[in-house]
Design a binder for these strands. Structure first.
Length: 419
RNA sequence: GUGAGCGUAGCCGAGAGGUUAAGGCACCUGGUUGUGGCCCAGGAGAUCGUGGGUUCGAUCCCCACCGCUCACCCCA
């Protein structure tokens, strides 16, 4: 028997209200903050991601869905949004638009990983980018989108994590200090960390091994090594956060897996949804557009995982908005009555009123049972009696009260009830 | 890629080495020859994940594979 591929899932009707609620909130917020929607292709040239995300990252090294298309072009299913959006910024000359250009997207993302709670091979993200301004107030704005999104969804108990990763000017000095600090501890540290010190030293700060914790705790903090520009940027961002009374945790160990981040990095953490607790992650990427062949252009953004939002809604018992059932169900008996029912259901729908018809000429009992389960408010019964008198029997499912209404008057009656 | 746990109908879930593999939910039919939710009766639905082995016999024992779940890694 066929199954959905590993790490993918069907979003069944029962779950759609969650998605609908999230997407509606997201779209309303984007409008509120002045972000315009952009949809980029689900796949791009492989080299775009290799360049943008960076060789040496897990995403590029082992998580991309890459293949050659029939023309032999190396293609990759997008493992994140940012690279594709930056490509579009460059390709469409968006530097001639009023800056910053503020864009958002939602859609599927692909990474070849072992699935677990809150992690999938195909998942969906809400992505926000503000390109073309280096103002820390813009970092604040981006963080505010995340803040307001989770607030409006009704989440509690979230933790905002903030750090700065410096820039190409000041980071080397920090990495040097970090390596120097680790030198005497190299034998005490785990195998992974020894490897990280060579490949990607920042990541040692992220290690969860018990044996490494004490060493991490004593390690130097990057914010003590920031250049004047980065330090100023960071302190102004913190000032703005204080201005709005936004609590956050200064996390010296927060480093992110993608190469392109500069200055601000942040994540929002939740509890109760498993080990994969990051609801969103983002930050500033001032070198990325240039790296992809565009002019030097600053940018800041974040992406939030929609599956994780759904998980958290369920964990926190947050009820999504539901569309509800159609108000009418037509039950008929006899071929002639069926003709009349088919006509009436068409008429109601054309008039914008929700109506469902039963199929298969089932017994009245079966039709009412279906009506009960569907949650419709009224059952419209048409049988030989009604036909003979040009009437419709209307049954109110709440109490079971029935009344006969002349066929000619019914449409007006219905409109009054449900529109 | 590594580790652990688990795989019995759409879902949940009992079960013993040996005649027809419980039960509940959901579904269908009937009890009301035109009427739901409760109740009653009945029905349909399972090659007991797959393959091999042990055995007179395996769904239950052994092995392999596949799948699912959680965790590591890493991230949304």
């Amino acid at each position: 028997m066929y199954q959905a591929p590993r790490g993918t899932q069907d979003i069944l009707p029962a779950d759609q209200p969650y998605w609908r609620t999230i997407l509606q909130t997201v779209e309303r917020l984007a409008q509120t903050y002045g972000y315009a929607r952009i949809d980029t292709p689900i796949f791009e040239d492989t080299s775009l991601f290799e360049r943008g995300v960076g060789g040496g990252t897990d995403i590029v090294d082992k998580e991309m869905y890459s293949f050659e298309d029939k023309g032999g072009t190396p293609i990759t299913l997008r493992p994140e949004f940012t690279a594709g959006v930056m490509r579009a910024y460059i390709e469409h000359g968006m530097r001639t638009w009023p800056q910053p250009v503020k864009l958002y997207s939602t859609g599927p993302i692909f990474r070849y990983e072992r699935p677990q709670a809150g992690r999938f091979r195909q998942h969906h993200q809400f992505n926000v980018e503000a390109i073309g301004a280096q103002d820390p107030a813009l970092d604040l704005e981006i963080m505010s989108v995340a803040w307001q999104l989770y607030t409006e969804l009704g989440f509690g108990g979230l933790s905002f994590q903030l750090n700065s990763t410096g820039c190409p000017q000041c980071r080397p000095a920090y990495l040097h200090a970090l390596k120097a600090y680790y030198q005497p501890h190299e034998s005490a540290v785990c195998d992974d960390c020894r490897r990280r010190l060579q490949r990607n030293p920042l990541r040692v700060l992220d290690c969860k091994k018990e044996s490494c914790q004490a060493i991490i705790a004593g390690s130097p903090h990057i914010i003590d090594y920031l250049c004047a520009e980065c330090a100023e940027h960071f302190s102004r961002l913190r000032h703005y956060l204080d201005l709005l009374g936004r609590p956050y945790e200064l996390n010296h160990r927060l480093v992110r897996g993608l190469d392109y981040y500069t200055k601000t990095v942040f994540e929002v953490w939740a509890s109760g949804i498993g080990a994969q607790n990051a609801l969103c992650g983002g930050g500033r990427y001032d070198g990325l557009v240039e790296e992809l062949g565009g002019p030097p252009t600053p940018g800041v953004g974040f992406a939030s995982g929609l599956e994780r939002i759904v998980l958290l809604m369920k964990a926190q018992d947050i009820e999504p908005e539901s569309l509800g059932p159609a108000p009418f169900l037509l039950a008929y008996q006899g071929a002639e009555a069926k003709d009349s029912a088919v006509r009436l259901v068409n008429e109601l729908r054309a008039g914008g009123m929700g109506a469902i018809l039963t199929f298969g000429d089932r017994s009245m009992k079966a039709q009412l049972r279906q009506a009960n389960r569907s949650g419709v408010r009224f059952v419209l019964i048409i049988g030989p009696d009604e036909l003979a008198e040009a009437q419709i029997t209307v049954r109110d499912m709440a109490g079971g009260a029935q009344q006969r209404i002349a066929r000619a008057d019914f449409f007006a009656w219905a409109k009054e009830r449900v529109l």
